[in-house]
Design a protein around this nucleic acid. Structure first.
Lengths: 316, 316
DNA sequence: AATATATTTTCCAATATTGGAAAAATAAAG
DNA sequence: CTTTATTTTTCCAATATTGGAAAATATATT
């Protein structure tokens, strides 16, 4: 401690070491793309994007003009607003070549959403994270909890269908992430959830403020890893979730609360869950028969996509 | 010249002014995305991408790991390669919401490409540039001149269908860009081309080395504006193009050379050309009837897409 | 029309990023 | 198993980028 210069040198090294794996300018670009992808219907001014993404107006100016010049963003000269550009369409189309199932899913859930007047989305799991790939259907009220491109950690109560067919070890690991924060009742409920999902072929939950809050707190930031506060806050909210918000066992018991979402699995050729279809925005006050009807339609769509992807439902 | 410090200051200012509108770190990210989008079927190592995009390995390392961490790139840990990731799929799907015609076009040209065993692509014009949005169909031989996401300036002989219905002023401006470099014969041929395209409803050309070379020299770089050499070289190559490489007037005269491409317009609701469909890779040694058959099929697909987009063919 | 409000663009010192080289880690060949 | 050839990762001085404030421009309001 007698040599401040050495101390400060070490501190700098430490800081550098912490950032060495991340390129901030790169994350800025990805942040902008992610933000605009999450709000595809809207257009934004430079100042709005700068605020939302956490850039200074100066930096945002250069980043956005550069992206617009390359056609990755479209600029409306009259309104001075930005939105996703044609180069993103091109790059996205190219990416789809690698993820063939996605456009099949998009086509089918668009049909379903239009037909039943609900909102449908599809998500996948990569690197232990759940990402929303597609969303179709007019948004009702304030149910826009999921945005395209958003990522969430794969922990209860999200991604149940991704886990349900992944084997006992994966299920235990999944529960284990929040085990400590759950009441005995919910823990038991969660354990019983997976056999039920496999038997039914879909997952279902009721609406509730607790699950809603947890979902909102779950969105992962692009560049930086979530900090300790993120996890503390999240675990606390997850601890408050009610059993029915995780999984609705008795379909007749939803009269009052209303259905939060129904999700169904799309299987890949290797029998793993490739995508999870999510349906939200159903009418309230549904009877058990009505609910089953929605679920059956979602499962039928999931089965169709599975089939078109040459997917295979695992035995068991 | 007596004050070097002032001189160097001014020079710096000048340099800064020239770059003030462009963010290099941003362009790096877009370059990587564009490169990978242009080769959607392949995967690349860090070193390969660094070479192709012109980055130092050090920078490439940070950029690529950052992009991979955000799921914009997918990393194959075993082979240590990168390709487009799921976040790009998500962002692309979001972008499509703004450009509804594109996925309709994709679906239809995929059908057409499979059915006729040819390669089809769709391009659009933004900010005076032509961009390839979609490409479908197995590549034959070395006809992979167009890559998804690639941009070309809208000058003869590319984008004829985009211009043919844009009015006399646009046509004159279009021809004017290369007017000086054309022989009298080709200039006349080019002027006669547009009424013919409108009458036929499509554009058609024969294969030829001159047009091929010009096309290859045309690809625009992402970040930097093309330099003087780019234009000099390009104009020289365009000057060498033969009339039939621009437009084939007599369909019976293609026996020997073979058809280069056929293109047809997709119209937007406002009657402008929204996209240009391009068909390449047809069998060689075709008679006039065979050629017409291909053209009719392409035009039928273009008409279908126009219809699904609620587009309208302009009167005239 | 004039004022107020908001947004875009420019500028420069402070600072984070880059390129290049060298080290570590792999993969391939002997 | 050892050596050779690549590729990936780390490091630091050189340098290009950033944030913040202020100027210019546009939009809304009185």
């Amino acid at each position: 401690m007698a040599q401040p210069s050495v101390s400060s040198y070490l501190r700098m090294q430490e800081v550098k070491r912490a950032m060495i794996e991340d390129s901030n300018p790169t994350n800025r670009v990805l942040d902008v793309l992610s933000f605009l992808a999450a709000h595809p219907a809207e257009t934004f001014t430079l100042a709005e994007i700068a605020r939302q993404v956490g850039l200074s107006t100066g930096s945002a100016h250069r980043v956005l003009t550069t992206m617009a010049k390359a056609q990755f963003l479209a600029r409306d000269e009259k309104r001075r607003t930005y939105s996703l550009g044609v180069a993103m369409v091109a790059a996205g189309q190219a990416a789809i070549e690698k993820y063939r199932g996605v456009d099949i899913a998009r086509r089918e859930i668009a049909k379903l959403a239009a037909e039943l007047d609900v909102q449908c989305s599809a998500s996948t799991v990569t690197a232990g994270e759940l990402m929303v790939l597609v969303k179709e259907g007019a948004p009702k009220s304030h149910m826009a909890l999921t945005r395209v491109g958003e990522r969430r950690p794969l922990i209860p109560p999200v991604g149940l269908c991704h886990v349900a067919w992944a084997g006992e070890a994966a299920i235990e690991a999944y529960i284990g992430k929040v085990d400590f924060y759950l009441s005995e009742t919910v823990r038991k409920h969660l354990h019983d959830t997976f056999p039920l999902i496999r038997r039914r072929g879909y997952s279902i939950s009721v609406t509730g403020p607790n699950a809603g809050h947890a979902l909102q707190a779950m969105t992962l930031p692009i560049g930086r890893a979530p900090d300790a506060e993120y996890w503390t806050n999240l675990y606390e909210l997850i601890g408050k979730i009610m059993p029915d918000e995780v999984q609705l066992f008795d379909l007749a018991g939803a009269d009052e609360t209303g259905i939060g979402h129904i999700t169904a699995p799309v299987f890949a050729p290797d029998g793993t869950v490739a995508m999870q279809l999510v349906m939200i925005g159903m009418a309230r006050k549904l009877g058990a028969r009505d609910i089953e009807h929605y679920a059956e339609r979602l499962c039928a769509t999931a089965a169709l996509i599975t089939s078109e992807m040459h997917g295979r439902v695992p035995k068991g």
